[in-house]
Simulated assay, not measured.
Amino acid sequence: MNISVPQGVQFCYEELNGSCTRITYPLSIRIPLYLFFTSTVIVIVGGNILVMITILNFEQLQTPTNYLVFSMSVADLLLGMVVMPPNMIESLEKCWYFGDFLCKFHASVDITLCNASVLHLTCISIDRFCAVTKPLQYQNKMTTCVVLTMISVSWIFSAIFGFAVIFSPSDSDPSAESVDVDCIGGCSGLHEKEIGVSYFFVFYFIPLTIMSTIYLKIFVIAIKQANTIHEINKQVRLDKNNLTKMDFKATKTLGIIIGVFLCCWTPFFICNIIDPIIGHSIPALLYEILMWVAYLNSMFNPIIYAFFHTWFRKRFQILLKKCFK
């Protein structure tokens, strides 16, 4: 999108012909935004590292569910380390300074990590469904081998699709995204308008419809089982019920994570669906804002674990005590 600058035109590369135009924000805007984006990246990286370290350091936490959580934390961590810093520079400087190949590679990694997050959440919802609906068969069915297979399929499928969309010829698929631009210093990545409605329908609405349906069933079943356990506890207290209570807490927390994911990503996805219908009239600035709102999901996930999971708080306190002895 060409943007006219009232007070003189600046370029990404002043010495090169065909350079993209550049908009320079005032320092009063750039500095606070740099501080905000940098702080967000630090919280994302630090928070997800804490979740990963906590799971790795305690054998009792190395369960099939937490393997999925660990893998999702890896995706969030890579998003904060690899994807967000270049996007921060491009968003504030309005130029891409890292070359054409890195533009395509960056967009591919972006798509891969976004797809991986959705697929991991889907796998986690399936895991919780099995734990609540079939608690006696859960450990036999949801084994470490099964979970590792789910994780591998999620990553491999996400990577294949992410890199195929970007590096495949743009004329082979009209809905495929193109990262080629007509000027030097520009880069159209995942968060641009010509991605294709079908992509978001397949990798967003269908998985989230599945997750919503599963969690609705889990919610109904969990209420029934909780009432049953409550009646049993009136007569006799059994230690075996602690496992069921833990499953309910884990299900509730993971349900909150899915809800936060919906709040962060839905506005951006809806914007991409509506934009082609209204002739691509949605401002580019709105896309960037919604992009960063979506990225905040990777920051909220470890915060949710810190506040809603007692196992995280207790184990993290133990790690802090060990570190400061």
Rank of each mutant, 00 (worst) to 15 (best):
S4I: 07
P6A: 06
Q7G: 02
Q7A: 02
V9N: 15
Q10D: 12
G18L: 12
P26R: 11
L27T: 10
R30Q: 04
I31H: 06
F37H: 11
F37I: 13
T38L: 14
G47K: 05
L56C: 02
N57C: 15
Q62I: 03
P64S: 15
T65R: 09
N66K: 14
S71Q: 14
S71G: 10
A75V: 07
P85S: 15
P85G: 14
E90S: 05
E90D: 04
F105V: 11
A107P: 00
S108D: 04
S108Q: 03
D110W: 00
I111M: 01
I111Q: 00
L121T: 06
C123L: 09
I126T: 11
D127L: 07
R128S: 04
A131P: 05
V132R: 02
Q137A: 02
Q139N: 15
K141N: 10
T143I: 08
T144M: 10
T144C: 08
V146L: 10
V147M: 07
L148W: 05
L148S: 00
T149H: 05
V153F: 12
W155V: 07
F157E: 05
S158G: 04
I160K: 10
F161L: 07
D173W: 02
P174L: 15
S178Q: 05
S178I: 01
V179T: 09
V181A: 15
C183E: 10
C183N: 05
C187G: 11
C187P: 01
G189R: 01
G189A: 11
E194V: 13
S198C: 13
S198D: 11
Y204F: 13
F205A: 07
P207T: 04
P207S: 08
I210C: 13
M211Y: 02
M211A: 06
S212P: 09
K217Y: 13
V220R: 14
Q225I: 12
Q225N: 11
Q225W: 04
T228M: 06
H230F: 13
K245S: 05
K245N: 10
M246F: 02
T251W: 00
K252Y: 10
T253G: 03
T253H: 04
T253E: 02
G259T: 11
F261N: 10
C263K: 04
W265T: 08
T266F: 13
N272M: 08
I277H: 09
H280W: 13
P283E: 01
A284I: 14
E288K: 09
I289G: 01
M291G: 13
M291L: 08
W292T: 04
S298F: 01
M299D: 05
P302Y: 11
A306L: 15
F307D: 01
H309M: 09
I318F: 03
F324W: 13
